[in-house]
Design a binder for these strands. Structure first.
Lengths: 348, 348
DNA sequence: TTTTAACACGAAAACGTTTTCGTGACATAT
DNA sequence: ATATGTCACGAAAACGTTTTCGTGTTAAAA
């Protein structure tokens, strides 16, 4: 077991100084061809690679970006990570992942751990608990210390930083318009409570689409679920709520759901109640998930382009890291990713 | 924008030496109560936190573990990451993620990037291309340099290191036994080519179960797919292959598939051919995925406990990192995670 | 021959810590 | 009065780099 070799060891072996070795390896013109050859050959032989930590300390730059997300077992978030990793790697950065698990305190702790020199900047999506508490001090403190932050998907407008978001409003609106043009008359909405920013926007898109088409808004058609309950575990509870919705609105012929699970459950409940999809009820979900594609019937859905979000966020962050900030130049961008409506079997 | 404060700055402000500040903050008995109070108060006020990079350099320990996986948009792998992150965080470590994207060269590059001081050890699952090429020099070189490696799921027996694997053989065997006891007579196997170690083991489990029950092995019932083709994209190609299988073996009444997608496709094809599940054909998959639970009919499956694998791998690695290695003591463990057979609607 | 310039290299500082060891001031014991 | 000991702190090294600056040697120019 041979430990990694250092400049100092090479210097000692070849009986030159550390500086000479360093310069020789970086091909400095200061060093004679002879010495360069000798040093480079030796370094190659012993497979010398500069120590990243030492470089980070010297350069005050880690070439690592931190990404903090609420959950990793989730198609959307893992796709975002893939996007981040893709451009990060391409541009010479590593990615360190922190999970907040939707908890405020874990989010804070994770950020503090990483902010102490481990990374150059953050890419993150805010946890539900943080959104509820509306306590954003940790974001502001991090940025105060000169560490750039790029938020994606779940953002809040109060915070001044770069953002990458989905056109939730537009995507939802188009989905509902699709249902309308497909001749749906009673379109239900299955959404989350308003503190989830994306849920709120999608709800507004639903409303706007109905309004523009001259439909009246019936609050009985809107089911707002408290998603603090993990419905992946308590599936029956979710289905019960949706069943109630269908039973008290027997004329429902269209459903727009703000995520995949809600949409699938809606299809399941509808079928259970003897309704056929898409003949009797048409359903559209909102997601980049894998369920939509493989469900039966497959689910029409609003695609968010999660991977592209990750790529954009990473580019935004790295650009900021690599431009010399002229201080006052506090210009923050918000990139809006457009959605696509993917039509599958759950719509006509 | 106030940059992070350092010991040196505190020392200058309070007109003491750097060492005094360091000791005061670590509550050294060498320092008088007076000075401690003063220093600690000042540090708190300016929210001093030691710089991780400097600590890493000093201690030659980063408290970071690297995890390299072939793909992150995948339920199994993201669950493993969650497990790793869970215990890593609990034990004071960060997690840095590298994606090989099933490519040999990306795997090598990623490992080299991280091995140069960025992390203390690796947790990884081998990429398909590496398994095909059977080129494992990068693993051995990393370990030669004294960096511990824990492999999970996709491992090879030639490499001497700690491992966490699933009981693929046993899980597959039990699944097929279940089909047999459910009265299936013609049980098909949908698997991968043998270079995927887990696929091979599951295939052997299938064979063993049949043999023990006195069934004859019919090679026409075994479909070996080349999974270099990404069937998530070329779904029709996959379905066509499976359709062939069913058409040339019309008596098939049971299917064991080595992953989720194969199982789902089998169900889809069977239904298309007018077969009802589970009445005419019973199906069992192998996975920890989300599709199984939400498909219609829901899929009976062999659960791998991915998160537990991640947890075990992390514990194994951190234990190794934190015990002083008495050199010769080259004891490597292999932890086998037992599977569970989750019965859902696709079996009787 | 003396001055200048180019060349090839080394010493040392810096990044931010922790830790070992040394030392001056003062108090106590001889 | 001298020796011993405790206390409170500082200097310096170390981790592994890069880079600035200084310097001794040799060759070219005056």
């Amino acid at each position: 077991m041979k430990r990694k070799i250092t400049l100092k060891q090479i210097a000692r072996e070849l009986d030159v100084s550390i500086s000479t070795v360093s310069k020789a390896l970086r091909n400095s013109p200061e060093i004679s061809e002879d010495t360069k050859q000798k040093v480079q050959a030796f370094a190659k032989l012993y497979n010398y690679k500069p120590n990243n930590i030492a470089l980070s300390l010297k350069n005050r730059k880690t070439n690592t970006i931190g990404i903090i997300i609420p959950e990793i077992v989730h198609h959307f978030f893992s796709k975002v990570i893939r996007g981040v990793e893709l451009v990060a790697n391409k541009r010479g950065y590593n990615v360190i992942v922190g999970l907040s698990n939707e908890s405020f305190s874990k989010e804070v702790i994770n950020m503090e751990m990483l902010a102490n020199g481990s990374i150059d900047g953050f890419i993150l999506s805010i946890s539900k608990e943080t959104l509820q508490l509306q306590d954003y001090h940790h974001f502001n403190e991090t940025m105060d210390q000169g560490m750039p932050v790029v938020m994606f998907d779940r953002v809040v407008s109060d915070i001044k930083c770069d953002k990458v978001i989905v056109n939730d409003f537009g995507g939802a609106k188009r989905a509902v318009e699709k249902l309308i043009s497909n001749n749906c008359k009673q379109i239900a909405l299955i959404t989350t409570k308003d503190y989830v920013s994306v849920g709120k926007l999608r709800t507004q898109g639903y409303m706007e689409a109905l309004k523009e088409s001259g439909f009246e808004l019936k609050s009985s058609l809107i089911l707002k679920l408290d998603d603090r309950l993990d419905y992946e575990v308590h599936l029956e509870a979710l289905e019960k709520e949706i069943e109630q919705l269908f039973k008290s609105n027997t004329a429902i012929d269209g459903v727009f759901a703000v995520n995949e699970l809600y949409a699938l459950s809606a299809m399941k409940v509808a079928r259970k109640l003897g309704l056929e999809i898409p003949r009797d009820v048409q359903v559209i979900g909102f997601t980049d998930g894998v369920l939509s594609k493989h469900s039966t019937p497959s689910l029409s859905t609003v695609s968010q382009h999660a991977q592209i979000m990750g790529e954009r966020a990473a580019d935004l962050l790295i650009n900021k890291l690599e431009t010399v900030s002229t201080e006052a130049e506090e210009e923050y961008q918000t990139i809006v990713i457009e959605t696509d409506l993917i039509e599958r079997e759950s719509t006509k």
